[in-house]
Design a protein around this nucleic acid. Structure first.
Lengths: 254, 254
DNA sequence: CGCGTCTTTGAGTCGCTTCAATGTCTGTGG
DNA sequence: CCACAGACATTGAAGCGACTCAAAGACGCG
């Protein structure tokens, strides 16, 4: 199966040699079973992870029991990057399904900044996009009701799954328990259940054993009532002066 | 006055020529008066800003009226970076006091990735640190009470002001209205007031016309009950293989 | 079939919101 | 020097959304 590179080239065009570089990391891939941790808060930071298959939740613990899921990662995402700025990992990466990740060690990252500025810029912009996503989450959780948050999450998930080519018939399998959703949305599991029920009974979604079907996309958007940000794609890269990197010509120029 | 470079060299040692580069941007500085916007949601993204003096709030609008303040910036911070990944600015940058910012245009950023990988790595790690801060905020707002959030914010502010050398006698001027605090913490202005009153009457802080004094640091920490993350400083840089950039020797090696 | 995990539902409570009014400060002009 | 306006802070009372506690139902797995 073709590894999910759509996130890598969303801001920067990939050359053949770029792909070769990335493919080398894919060789060092690790499998982790559902429910297990890829890395825990406080663990040593040896690198970052590229998610090849499966879903991952990255979360932070608060006092006793309370935890906040910060992001649900899909195939193609880079995991554990924020912890690069910490002396010990600040987030727990939990496999929500069986997953395959490839490891990118720290020194390889450092080398990339010198040898391949193009990819470095891509990674940099990708991180900024993640920051925007975090700011969005913060806004929802800070200023929206439980119904709005849940609707917004389902919509976000749906669009990201589409981008990765992982939806079938406007529906998708949701491998999160209601406890997970609660930790993600900042509400209790009980209230997740009631809120899901409301969305279901109002005809916006249909649920059947872990599978979600968006029955009324426009209606759901009206509930969430937030315009998703428009990303810049390669436009951002050209805005930065298209730093081509190690003298490889821009493949888009020809 | 010495420009606040402490955030620039927190992860990467600055060489003399680095400082020269940065100082050139300082020349193109702009003054903005309190209450005015540096950049609005939807504006053209021409670059990023380096905050020389004053406080800035970056916020996102939700539906009519509701807004979420995502971060309060202090001197030394870089502003508006997330919007690099968007075709139009996704955040509003509002001056909370009279401020001075210098502009770093997009092409200059792109050039830096080629000509000065060292600074690029520093900026990259700095962005990861901001991401961790965002994840922290998300956790507080999602899983903590109003009292805990407020305590955590005041503590965070206090420690960042200390790092910038901007506190006097364990106190600081807080140029935020209670409306600002409300938009930041995700509660109503009315409840901000009641919560501040509780912190005051319990002896944790003292308030007097916009000035905050931390009266009981340990007590306030116990209320917030969150361990701040330990950042990696130059450790992260060495972990990445210390990419020195354009053949300038590592000043820390000698 | 039986066990554990997850989901669903009900009833009572609490934190925060909403609405509304009063109090306080600051700057401005007469 | 005082009167006034506007913005901000403070306080009260009532209501609602989400929480807590608790129990029963459904599913998946050995």
């Amino acid at each position: 199966m073709q590894p999910p590179y759509h996130r890598l080239e969303e801001f920067v065009p990939l050359t053949g040699s770029d792909e070769g570089l990335v493919r080398r990391f894919a060789a060092s891939s690790r499998k982790i079973h559902r429910g297990h941790a890829i890395r825990r808060e406080g663990d040593h930071v040896g690198g970052i992870f590229f998610l090849m298959e499966g879903w991952v939740a990255s979360s932070m613990m608060l006092r006793e029991g309370r935890r906040q899921i910060v992001k649900v990662h899909l195939p193609g995402d880079m995991l554990g990057m924020p912890s690069l700025s910490l002396s010990r990992a600040g987030e727990t990466l939990e496999a929500l399904t069986d997953v395959v990740v490839s490891v990118i060690p720290c020194p390889a990252l450092g080398r990339m900044f010198i040898e391949n500025p193009r990819l470095a810029v891509g990674l940099f912009l990708s991180t900024q996009k993640e920051r925007v996503a975090l700011m969005q989450s913060l806004s929802w959780i800070g200023a929206a009701s439980a119904l709005e948050r849940l609707a917004a999450f389902l919509l976000d998930l749906h669009s990201r799954l589409n981008a990765a080519g992982l939806t079938r018939a406007d529906g998708f399998d949701l491998p999160l328990t209601q406890q997970h959703l609660a930790d993600l949305l900042g509400i209790t599991p009980v209230h997740v259940n009631r809120t899901l029920k409301r969305l279901d009974q109002a005809g916006y979604v249909q649920r059947s054993r872990g599978r979600i079907v968006i029955a009324d996309l426009a209606g759901l958007r009206a509930v969430a009532a937030n315009a998703p940000p428009r990303f810049a794609d390669h436009e951002a890269w050209t805005r930065l002066g298209s730093p081509s990197g190690n003298h490889i010509p821009d493949p888009r120029a020809g």
